[in-house]
Write a protein that binds this DNA or RNA. Structure first.
Ligand code: MN
Ligand code: MN
Ligand code: ZN
Ligand code: ZN
Lengths: 139, 139
DNA sequence: CAACAGTTTAGAACAGTTATAATGTAGAAA
DNA sequence: TTTCTACATTATAACTGTTCTAAACTGTTG
């Protein structure tokens, strides 16, 4: 739940001018009670529903990538079909429901911190992500 | 390190007839000292190097997918650029070197088993995968 | 060996993503 | 406020990895 001047700040700090298209994208992404996961296609649909103006795909991709680079969005690797993004940028893990093709957050407190007893010389750890794939109980 | 009759068995049990193209693919995949990770593109290059016959892309994709479905290969979710596969089908985790775009196995013994204290009603866990992204130490 | 079901293949089609270049606009300067 | 310019938007083309197609080919079975 943010107001316009906060969107403008988010855009400026991502190196983007605050245009009306980008502010609309911000509203859809950040003016929500809860964080959520999305594909670009789903986001574009959400945007069309919430405005009469049409925003081009290129603008959506550009804005999403700028936010991702700035750390205002995370990309979640699921498979190679399409990109999944997350408006929850805190450190957390995921269930992936393969039947529903649905990503679900796992609260940080619900996962024992992952301990890794080996390193790669000359490399430092950037992130540790756990993906728990689930399916219908009966199947 | 397997012999031809073992490849034939792998193919048959995957629902595929043992043709010479598919046996060549088996050799490249399974006739190695160590397991390895690959993209389809890398695999096709490896195949061309090890034979004079050309094997079509469609045959490679079909065979890889049959092996994946049967569990003789695993797909590792990294990003949406392309699919990464693994001839190591045992339960293990990965480092992903973002500078080198390189996947590296983490030995099962080098990761504390991941404990998850929450479940999704009606769903059962299919897999738990840890991806540790690393980058050059200086950067 | 004949017959057929399954296989290979080149290339087309497709989907997601990125690039292009003409037109439009935000914001700064005058 | 008007003018100017760097940056943004857009439609659409290009690109890339993957899947599909349909004709030619081959392994297998009788
Ligand atoms: Mn996939
Ligand atoms: Mn990506
Ligand atoms: Zn999440
Ligand atoms: Zn591996």
């Amino acid at each position: 739940m943010l107001n316009n001047s906060q969107y403008i700040e988010k855009l400026r700090s991502s190196g983007l001018r605050p245009t009306k298209q980008r502010i609309k994208i911000c509203e859809v992404l950040f003016n929500t009670e809860k964080t959520f996961h999305f594909t670009i296609n789903e986001l574009v649909k959400k945007i069309s529903k919430s405005t009469n103006d049409k925003i081009s795909l290129a603008t959506v991709y550009n804005t999403i990538h700028a936010f991702k680079n700035k750390g205002y969005l995370k990309e979640i690797p699921i498979n190679s079909d399409q990109s999944y993004f997350d408006t929850n940028t805190s450190h957390h893990h995921h269930f992936y429901d393969e039947s529903q093709r649905d990503l679900i957050d796992i609260d940080e407190a619900d996962v024992e911190p992952v301990k890794i007893y080996t390193r790669i010389p000359g490399k430092k750890i950037k992130s540790v992500e756990v993906l728990v794939k689930v399916e219908d109980d009966k199947s």
